[in-house]
Design a binder for these strands. Structure first.
Length: 582
RNA sequence: GCGCCCGUAGCUCAGCUGGAUAGAGCAUCCGCCUUCUAAGCGGACGGUCAGAGGUUCGAAUCCUCUCGGGCGCACCA
């Protein structure tokens, strides 16, 4: 149940019934200020211009029609026209109360997408040659939040972890691995420190001519399918994927081994793909390379945008692999949408690949190809986030630090917890804080990573939301009844109760918008507002205190339940865990 | 040079398809715990929405230009 869509439908019907042209839009939105109703329809002003009439007269005609609609009569308690022609709509508390009861009986919290789509989501996609670092954080957690939300809406989501598991650097790594294995190391032990391994093999490569030649030879052997080299490559790949998988587990990211479909998976498709582009007359030789010139993306002077799909030496590039992946995603996975959560710096590349894929017929006509870029994670100095010594921050280290810092705060705030409880809470709080700090910002901007603001746990942070949830659970424990079994009439008398009910019932609107635009921060803002309204309700509307009659108590318990369920689900969609105590 | 993104309170950020008096948090200051968890609540202070034009009933939001910042632009991914 989506309040805004519902009202939008009613207002649109009313506008048509009032004889206004179909092009007129209802423009329904939640009101920003108290005193302007709960929702407002702003379409009368625009319609007045089209109909060449006075805005307030048009508004009155719309209102007259609305008042004849029996559904509106149930839903809306008060309609007024204000200012130049705003139509302010106040929701009926009884209608709100009835809907709170409905969502309390519904695991989907009133959310059901009527048109399930197949959505392929490309996210995380680390390079297996190196250890996962902070640069992978945003893609992994933003992508995962959108994936979880799409699945909750009932879409068929196909995760694609397009890992970097192919290319020239693997010759060097495999050669290094071979040497260390000969010294009696096991693969998993040799690769325990993946970052160090990469550096030592790079050093080896730079310093030893013999080793460098071997590395180059292994690249060729790898690509021609040499059994020995392939075995080494598989060992390397397996260990590296295990590293990633550990990170996903700690981060509570839903990717697993089945979702991995790396660059190597498209290896056999690349040569035929280039041949096909040549046959279509799209790819031409230029300076020894195979290039497609896209006039669709020409610059001011009309110079088409070049996409190199094969190097002069015959090697393929990531554009080629991405094209092959796109074809697979459209023709084999039958995607309606393909979402890419990739750094904003890749925008030009993504646009080229999308344009070319459509032009060459590698994707179906009505597919939606979407690059959802994000900015860089910055340090407090406003420069890309690095360690004190200027190195790359490993994701594993970052997560450990988050949990350690959280544990100190948890111990400080609540000394009554057992060591076991404290450890579990610290993990959920620390990981949640790091994820929420990222998810709550508009993804397209760079964002400044700051331990202090993130773990101060005040204001718009995940602990605030988790705390709101824990407070509600604490009430339920104290009430000592099965709150989910309650199903009596609610009475929403206090302004804090009404405001909280409305916000709770707006969950569906926010979920819809956040997947449509792939913006999890909309969900964060919503949850923060919801938690804030709950805190106010908590202060103003006692539930279990003396002097509260049974009906009021049961009403408030049910309202609190709807909030708890919404907070829990909302945080779950962000990949953040809740707890009953903290 | 061309292209993309960005510029909102001292700091970190919201501001939805143009809507009514631009909102939070932090910081600063003032209140509220013999407890439904103070990781909280209430209040105060704080803005020429980078600047200039334009579009219109109405612009932080759309268009143009200027300034300032970030990032891309043929054989790495």
């Amino acid at each position: 149940m989506n309040i805004r869509n519902l009202l939008s439908d009613y207002v649109t019907q009313a506008m048509l019934a009032a004889g206004l042209p179909a092009e007129c839009q209802a423009h329904v939105a939640a009101s920003k200020k108290a005193g302007f109703g709960d929702y407002q329809a702003n379409g009368a002003m625009g319609a007045a211009k089209i109909a060449k009439a006075k805005p307030r007269d048009i508004a009155q005609q719309i209102v007259d029609q609305l008042q004849q609609n029996s559904d509106v009569q149930v839903m809306i308690s008060h309609i007024e026209i204000a200012g130049p022609g705003f139509i302010n709509l106040t929701l009926d508390p009884q209608w709100l109360a009835a809907n709170i009861r409905i969502i309390n009986q519904d695991k989907q919290l009133g959310i059901q997408d009527d048109q399930p789509q197949t959505v392929v989501v490309d996210y995380s996609s680390p390079n297996l040659a190196k250890e996962m670092h902070v640069g992978h954080l945003r893609s992994s957690i933003i992508g995962d939040a959108v994936v979880r939300t799409l699945e909750f809406q009932g879409h068929n989501v196909v995760r694609q972890n397009h890992v970097g598991d192919w290319g020239t650097q693997f010759g060097m790594l495999i050669a290094e691995l071979e040497e260390q294995l000969q010294e009696g190391e096991s693969a998993s032990l040799a690769l325990k420190d993946l970052e160090g391994f990469y550096q030592s093999s790079k050093k080896h490569f730079d310093e030893s001519e013999a080793f460098a030649n071997k590395a180059r030879d292994y690249v060729v052997k790898l690509q021609s399918g040499d059994a020995h080299v392939l075995t080494l490559w598989e060992q390397f790949r397996r260990v590296s994927l295990t590293h990633s998988q550990e990170i996903y587990q700690q981060l509570n990211v839903t990717l697993n081994a089945d979702d991995v479909r790396g660059e190597s998976a498209y290896n056999d498709d690349l040569a035929p793909l280039v041949a096909e582009l040549q046959q279509q007359g799209l790819a031409v030789e230029s300076q020894g390379a195979q290039v497609v010139f896209l006039e669709e993306m020409a610059d001011k002077e009309g110079n088409p945008s070049p996409v190199i799909i094969q190097k002069q030496g015959g090697g393929f590039l990531y554009a080629t692999t991405d094209l092959a992946a796109l074809r697979y995603r459209s023709h084999t996975l039958h995607a309606d949408r393909v979402l890419y959560f990739i750094d904003a710096r890749q925008s030009l590349h993504m646009q080229q690949v999308f344009t070319l894929a459509k032009k060459a017929g590698f994707v179906n006509d009505n597919i939606s190809l979407e690059h959802h870029p994000f900015g860089t994670m910055m340090g407090a100095d406003g420069k890309p986030f690095k360690t004190r010594t200027g190195g790359t921050v490993k994701l594993a280290d970052l997560l450990v630090e988050a949990v350690e810092r959280a544990e100190k705060v948890v111990a400080d705030k609540n000394p009554n917890l057992s060591a076991e409880e404290r450890a579990v809470i610290a993990r959920k709080v620390g990981i949640g804080a790091i994820k929420y700090a990222d998810l709550s910002k508009t993804r397209t901007n760079d964002y400044i990573f700051n331990w202090e603001t993130m773990l101060s746990f005040e204001g718009n942070t995940s602990p605030y939301l988790q705390y709101a949830y824990a407070r509600i659970q604490s009430i339920f424990r104290k009430a000592d009844i099965d709150v989910s079994a309650l199903n009596s009439e609610l009475a929403l008398n206090e302004p804090a109760e009404v405001a909280l009910s409305i916000k709770t019932l707006q969950f569906a609107e926010v979920v819809e918008q956040s997947t449509r635009e792939a913006y999890p921060h909309l969900l964060c803002t919503y949850l923060y507002d919801l938690a804030g309204l709950f805190m106010r309700f908590y202060e103003q509307c006692p539930i279990l205190k003396d002097g509260i009659d049974e009906d009021t108590k049961n009403s408030r318990l049910q309202l609190a339940l709807s909030v708890a369920n919404t907070l829990n689900k909302g945080l779950d969609l962000l990949g953040i865990e809740t707890m009953d105590k903290m």
